[in-house]
Simulated scan of single mutants.
Amino acid sequence: MNWRMPSETAPHERTWMAFPREGLTLGSEASEREEGYAAWTAVAHAVAEFEPVTMVVDPTELDRARRMLGSHVEILEAPLDEFWMRDFGPTFVVDDERPGVLGAVDWIFNGWGAPEWAEWRVSAEIARFAAAHVGAELVSSVLVNEGGGIHVDGEGTVLLTDTVQLDPRRNPYADRARVEAELARTIGTTKAIWLPRGLTRDYDDFGTNGHVDIVATFAAPGRVLLHDQRDPGHPDHAVTSELRELLEGQTDAAGRALEIVGLPAPATLRDDEGFVDWSYVNHLVVNDGVVACGFGEPEADARAAAILADAYPGRRVVTVDSRPIFARGGGIHCITQQQPALTSAEVAR
C-alpha cells in the first residue's frame, strides 16, 4: 500500500465531529454546559452548509443532539468520554495505486500524554468505529499521535512539533527518524518540517503540549499560514517570531522555498486563566468554503476572514464564535476531521 493523506483543500466526502457529553471538559455549571453544546452545534451547522456532517454521539446525549442538530447532521451513536474528533478520530488516507480505496489511520491516543485529568480510553476506540462505518481499510499505527499534531500539503510535506510526537509521555523511545518513518508509512510524507514548539497556552495542564494546528497550516503547497502575535506583551510574540524565522529557511518535499503568510492574532491578550491562545490558524477548510474562528472582535475577525479568503480563492469564509471552544482547550479544527472524497481528480494524482 502507498497511503497518502490528501491536503485539507482536496474535496471532502464529509466532516466528522463528536458531540459534547457531560464531564470535566464540558463544564460543571449548567450555563457552561449549554455554552459548550451550542458552540459544537454552531460549528456543525456551519460545516453542513458546505458538505455532509457525521456526528458521533454518546448514548447519554442522543436526545439533546437530535434536538439541537436537527435533520442537517447525520448522528451515529457510540460511547464517548472526550469529544475532540481531530485528535482521537481516524486520519483518513487514500492509495493512489488503488482508486476508490479509503484508508483510516488509527493512531494510539492516550489523552495528550495521559495526564491525570484526562478521560480518553473510550473515545480512543472511535477511529476503528468510524473506519468500519465507512468501509475504510484500517491502518494501525504504533505512534502515539493526534490529528491536531500534524498538517500536510498533500504532496509529501508534513508540519509537526518536537514537543508532541517526541513527548516522553507519548513516545518515550521515539526520535525524529522513527517518527518520520512511521509518518511515511501511514500518511505518505517524505519531508518533515519540525517546529520546536507550539503556543504558550498549549503547555498548561489542560493543553496538548504544542499541537501544530493552532500554529501553522498549509494553504497550498509551498504556502504556510502562520499565527502572528504582534503584541510584544504576549509571550507568543517571541514564539511566532522564532517560528517564522525557522520556516523561512525551509523547503518542502518538492524543494520549494516556503512563502509565509501571517494571520494576525486578535487584540485580546489574556482571559481569567492567563495568556490566551486565540488563533485564526485553527480553521477548517471545507468544500467551497472555510469555517473560521471568531473571537468577538469585529475588526480582527474581518481581517482574518479576508486573509483566509485570499489564501483559499473561490471559497466562502464563514466565521463562528470560537471562544467557548478555546475555553475548553481547542478550536474549530480540533473538533472536526475531514474524510476525503475519492474523486476522479484525487485518483488521477
Rank of each mutant, 00 (worst) to 15 (best):
R328V: 05
A10V: 04
G314E: 03
P313K: 14
E182W: 06
T91R: 09
V285N: 01
D153N: 11
H151L: 00
C293F: 07
I214W: 00
E125T: 12
P232I: 06
R178A: 14
R323N: 02
E297K: 05
P264H: 13
A219Q: 01
Y203V: 10
D175T: 05
H227P: 04
A253N: 04
A48E: 07
A130E: 09
D58N: 14
L26Q: 12
V158P: 01
G23Q: 11
D288V: 06
L26V: 11
A219G: 09
A238P: 07
D272G: 05
W107E: 06
G149Q: 00
E22D: 14
T25H: 05
G289P: 09
A174D: 07
V158F: 01
L76W: 14
W117Q: 03
G289L: 11
G207N: 12
P232K: 01
E22Q: 14
F109A: 00
A132Q: 12
G289H: 01
R86V: 02
V291F: 06
C334H: 06
H333P: 04
V56G: 01
V56W: 15
G36F: 05
F326D: 09
R4I: 10
A265Q: 07
A65G: 11
S123E: 08
D236N: 08
L225D: 05
A38H: 06
A44N: 13
I126Q: 15
V57C: 13
P52K: 11
R33A: 15
R21W: 00
W84K: 14
D301W: 08
A300Y: 05
R197C: 10
